[in-house]
Design a protein around this nucleic acid. Structure first.
Length: 277
DNA sequence: CCATATGTTACTCG
DNA sequence: ACGAGTAACATATG
């Protein structure tokens, strides 16, 4: 579910609520959620320690632990980190609970159970293969352009490839390609210089807007995005093409189409985003 | 029953 | 080597 703006919103919320409190108990109800350790080892490493900082890398949440470990979490499709108080009780999809000394409980909730925790002293082992952070200093146009020229893959597949650029998912990719007026199936090495530049800027624009709106919450089911305070985002109200199948393009009024690209539902305007020969 | 879902990875085929 | 396609993970929803 969550892409860069959603994870950023979650991290900002968590930072205010759980730092520097001792972890006094950990319940593990679904141990496959922990990728690197047994539930027993996971508990013994984290118990009586504390989270001293929380940062984000791409779609990963990095909890910096006082004992020099990093607890890295990827939410995949439906993972949520929910901050609750003393008397809240874990329910069906709450797979791990961290109890803090002040009574705060951190629930890891995940309907589809795809999310994973990685506990490691070497962050690079988990994060090392990621491409540049699109809102960071390492996202440089000359390098972006050079890398686009190096592959014939469909541009949508390239943008979803976390080793090419880290943090985009299905929603923000469709939005960025619409803003740059590029067809999602356009080969990456056949995009004009001006459209490459437009795409470079569009990626940053859609992510910044997503963060400003505190993420995109689609629908109202269990698996939809919510922040650590269980609040919905507002970015769904500003989308131009994603989930707008059959509606008029905000730019040209033509009907937004939906196709499948790289196994993902893909929304675009056939007038604004033409495939170039 | 079928298709689809904000993600990632392993595997096959050409 | 490269890129496309498929399946898998597990659950909910229309």
């Amino acid at each position: 579910m969550p892409e860069l703006p959603e994870v950023e919103t979650i991290v900002r919320g968590l930072r205010e609520k759980i730092l520097n409190k001792k972890i006094i108990k950990i319940d593990v109800n679904y141990s496959k959620t922990i990728d690197t350790h047994s539930a027993e080892d996971f508990r013994s490493i984290l118990l009586n320690s504390q989270i001293i900082d929380i940062t984000r890398r791409a779609k990963y949440i990095v909890f910096h632990i006082l004992n020099s470990y990093s607890l890295i979490l990827h939410l995949r499709m439906t993972g949520k980190v929910l901050i609750k108080t003393k008397n809240d009780i874990a329910t069906k999809h709450d797979h791990i609970t961290f109890h803090l000394e002040n009574g705060t409980q951190i629930f890891y909730n995940d309907t589809r159970k795809f999310g994973r925790f990685y506990l490691t002293k070497d962050k690079e082992k988990i994060l090392g293969k990621l491409g540049p952070e699109p809102l960071g200093n390492s996202f440089i146009y000359a390098e972006f352009s050079k890398k686009l020229a190096s592959t014939q893959r469909k541009i949508k597949a390239v943008l979803l490839d976390q080793s090419f650029i880290a943090g985009l998912g299905n929603i923000y990719t469709d939005e960025a390609l619409w803003e740059a007026r590029i067809h999602p199936e356009q080969p990456a090495n056949n995009i004009s210089q001006s459209k490459q530049k437009a795409l470079f800027e569009a990626i940053k624009n859609v992510l910044i807007k997503g963060i400003e709106n505190r993420g995109t919450s689609l629908g109202d089911g269990q698996g939809n995005y919510a922040s650590s305070g269980n609040n919905r985002g507002n970015n769904q109200n500003t989308l131009n093409v994603f989930a707008k199948t059959g509606k008029p393009c905000p730019n040209c009024e033509n009907i937004i189409q939906k196709i499948v690209v790289t196994q993902r539902g893909t929304h675009f305007c056939p007038m604004c985003q033409k495939l170039k020969k």
